[in-house]
Design a binder for these strands. Structure first.
Lengths: 231, 231, 231, 231
DNA sequence: GATGAATGAGATTTCATTCAT
DNA sequence: AATGAATGAAATCTCATTCAT
C-alpha cells in the first residue's frame, strides 16, 4: 500500500540504535495511553526531551512509527511465550503458562496497545492492517501448536475446529482484561489464570458421548422438575 | 460565564425523524468503518448527499452523534435479546439463543462499533466513557440473569465467579468475530453458535468431583504413556 | 454603499407594522446585550416566538435591522429632548435638562447601543458608518443650538470652538455611564446630572480675564508656598 | 477530564521575540480597524505574509492575542505617562501634559482600540473583561493621583467626587477623538490640549461661593434682559 | 545529526440567508 | 404571510511533516 522503501537515509550506528530504542519505548507509552489519533509527535518528542524533527530523522512518519511499536510489542510477547513454554510438562500446565504469561504481558500496556490494534487494524485505506495479519498469525502460533499436538494425542476434543478452541481461550482473556480496565480494578493474575484454565479445561476435553448424553438427560429432567416446582 | 444565547432548536416531526434516522444509519456505517477520529462530518454528509451544516442541524456535534450511534446500537441488541429470549426453555437453549443472536447482530457492523467502544471508551478526557458504562451493564444483564438463575438451580457450577463465566462466553464471541473480519471470511452463524455452546457447555457444568479426579488420572496416565511412546 | 432599494416586497398594513415594531423592540434588546456580531437572528426570532424566516420577510438582513434599531433609538432620544426642552428657562436649567434626559435614556439600553455604535460605526467596508453621521449630527443639534444661543448672548465663553464645549458635555456623560456599567454600579441620575452641570458650568462661563489672572497668580503663589513647605 | 498531552511550546529567542512583536503590531492594526469579531486570523497572517498556522505557534488563540494587544497598548500609555509626567511643575502644567500625551497616543490607533475595549469589555461570557479592569485602574491612576494631591492642597474643588472630575477630563478627550475619527478630520493636538485644559480648568477650581452667587445673579439678570430685548 | 519554526491541508462548527411548502 | 430546514461560506484551530540553519 505504502512506499516502504525510504528516500530518507536513516542514521546507523550504536548511538542511533539507542535513539531508535528510546523513541520506540516512549512512543509505545504514548500510543498505549492515547490511541493512534490522539497521539502527537510533539508529545512523543517532548517526553523524550528531543525535538520533533528528530523523530522524523529515524522514522518515516507517525504511521511507520506506530507499526514498529506494535511489531515490537508482538515480538516481545511471542518471544517470551516461546522461550518460557514448559514443553516437557502436561498440556494443562502449558496452557496455564500460556494464559498466565499473556495476562501478565497484556496488563502492563496491553489494553492500550490492544485497542490500538483493534482500531487501527480495521482502518480502510493505506493503513496498518497489512502489518497485523502475519503478526496475529505468529502470535497465536504457540497456542495453535499446543492445541494441535494435544488434539493429535487425543487429549482434547477433535469434534470442533481448532480456531474455535483458540477463540475460546484468547477471547475470555481479552474480555477479562478489558473489563478490568473499564472498571479500573486490579486483577490477581495467578488466580485468574488458574480459574480460567479450570473453567475452560472441561470444555477442551474429548466428549464422552454416552456420559454426556446421560448427563444431559439428567440435566433436562432436573430442570423440568424444578420448573414444574416453580410453576 | 455561560452563553447567553439559546442554541438553535433541533427540528421535530415525521420528516425530521426520518432525517435523524438517516443520519444515524450512515454515521453508524462510517464510525464502524473508520473509528471515531478518522470519521469526518464531511464524509457523513457526503454519503448522505446533504451539506455538512445539516448534520449539525440535528446533532450538536460529532461527539453527541457518536454517542447516539452507540446508544442506538446497544439498544437494538438489548431489545432483540430481551424480546426473543425463550424463557420457558432450557438454559442451554437460552444460551444458544443468546449466542446466536449476538453473533448475528455483531456481524453486521459489530466489530467496527465494538472497536469504537473499545478505543473511545478507554479515551482519557471528557469523552464517551460515561455513556458506555451503564450501556455495558444493561447489555450483559440478560446473560448474567440467565447464568445466575442456572447457578441457583444447580445447573451450572458455582465454584467460580459469574463474571468469569460471562467472560468465557462473551470473550470468544468477540474473538471469533474479530478474526472473521480480519481474515475477511464468512461465518456460518448457526453452526458457530451451536459449536460454541457445545464447546463451552461442559465448562459451565458443575464439577463432578470424583468423576473429574478419575478422568484427570486417566488423562495423565494416557499422556504419560504417549509421551513415553513418542520419546 | 449597499443596495437600499429592495427586490423583496415588504408587507404593509397595520398587522405588519406591529410585527415590525415587535421585531425592532426585541432586536434592540439583543443587540444592546450582545453587540452586533454575537447577536444571532435565531436568538431574535426565538425571543419573539416567531420563525427565523419571518425576520427576513420584514428586513433585508441583519445589517439593515441593526441600522434601523440604531436609527430608532436616536430618533427617540432626539424626540424626547426636542419635545421636553424647557426653552423658556435659563441656559443652565436647559443644560441640566439635557444632561438628565440623556443619562436617563442612555442608562436603559444606552451603553449597549452606544458600544454598538462605536464598534459598528467604525467598521470599514459596506457598513453602518454612513447611517451614523447624519444621526450624530441630529443628535447633537439641540445641544449645539443651546450652546450657540448662549454664546451669542454672551452667557458662555466664546474663546473656544463650540465643538470643544460640546465634547466637554457629552464626553463626561458617556464616560460616567461606561464606568457605571463596567463597575456594575447604580447611578443616581438626578444627583449626577446636578453635579455634572455644577462641575462644568464654571468651565463654560466667559473668562473674566483680570479675575482669572489674579486667581492664577494667587494659585501659583499658594502652590509654590506649599511645595516649599513640603520640601 | 483534562487534556493529557502537553501543548506545543511557544518559541523563545531573539528571532522569536521579533516575530511576536511583528504579530502584535499587525494584530493591533487589524483589531483597531475591524474590532474583535470581524478581525480574522487569516487577515492578520496575510498582512504579515506568513501562514495562519504561524500565528498559532506564538499565541494560543485569537482571544489571547487580542488580550496581549490591549495589554501592550495600555502598558505603552501608562509607561509614557508615568515616565514623562513633569512632577515638579504646577498641577495645571501636569494636567496639560497628561491630556496632550493621551491625545497623541490615542490618535494613532486609539479610537479603534478604545472601541475594542468598550465593546469587548462589556461582552458576557468568558471574555476579555477580566483583563480590562486592572488595566483600567492602572491607566487612570496617574490622573487620580494628580487630582487627589491637588485636592488635598486645596488647589481644586473638594465638593464633588473625584471620579466625576476624572470623567470630566477623560470623557471629553475620548469624545473629541471619536468625533475626529468619525469626521475624518485632523486634530491639532497641541492646540486641543491647551484649549481643553483652558476650558476645564475653571471647572476644577474651588468654588468661591460668594463670587459665584454674585456672578450667577449678574448672569441671570443679563439673560433676562436679553430675552426681554429679543422677545 | 539535531533542531524547531514554518507550513498548509483539513477538521469541526456557526449562522445569515434562501426558498419550497 | 409564515415557516423552518437546508445550505455553504467562512472562521478558528491542530498537527504531521519539511527544511534551512
Amino acid at each position: 500500500m505504502e512506499d516502504v522503501t525510504s528516500p530518507r537515509r536513516v542514521p546507523a550506528g550504536a548511538k542511533a540504535e539507542q535513539r531508535i530504542r528510546d523513541i520506540l519505548r516512549v512512543s509505545r507509552e504514548v500510543f498505549a495511553e492515547l490511541g493512534y489519533e490522539r497521539t502527537t509527535t510533539t508529545e512523543i518528542a517532548q517526553r523524550l526531551g528531543i525535538s520533533e524533527g528528530t523523530v522524523f530523522t529515524y522514522f518515516h512518519g507517525k504511521r511507520e512509527l506506530c507499526a514498529r511499536v506494535i511489531e515490537d510489542w508482538y515480538d516481545e510477547i511471542i518471544g517470551t511465550v516461546e522461550q518460557g513454554m514448559p514443553h516437557g510438562q502436561s498440556t494443562k500446565v502449558q496452557l496455564e503458562f500460556y494464559v498466565r504469561t499473556h495476562l501478565r504481558l497484556f496488563l502492563i500496556q496491553g489494553t492500550g496497545l490492544c485497542a490500538l490494534v483493534l482500531s487501527e487494524g480495521r482502518a480502510k485505506g493505506p493503513g496498518l492492517g497489512d502489518v497485523f495479519v502475519p503478526l496475529q498469525r505468529r502470535y497465536t502460533a504457540p497456542l495453535m501448536d499446543l492445541l494441535a499436538r494435544a488434539r493429535d494425542n487425543g487429549e482434547i476434543r477433535d469434534d470442533l475446529p481448532l480456531s474455535l478452541l483458540r477463540s475460546a481461550i484468547l477471547g475470555p482473556m481479552e474480555h477479562i482484561l478489558w473489563d478490568a480496565i473499564a472498571r479500573q480494578r486490579q486483577v490477581d493474575i495467578e488466580k485468574t489464570a488458574r480459574d480460567m484454565v479450570a473453567l475452560l479445561w472441561p470444555a477442551l476435553l474429548p466428549v464422552d458421548v454416552e456420559a454426556e448424553k446421560l448427563r444431559a438427560f439428567y440435566g433436562e429432567v432436573g430442570a423440568a422438575l424444578r420448573r414444574a416446582g416453580n410453576g
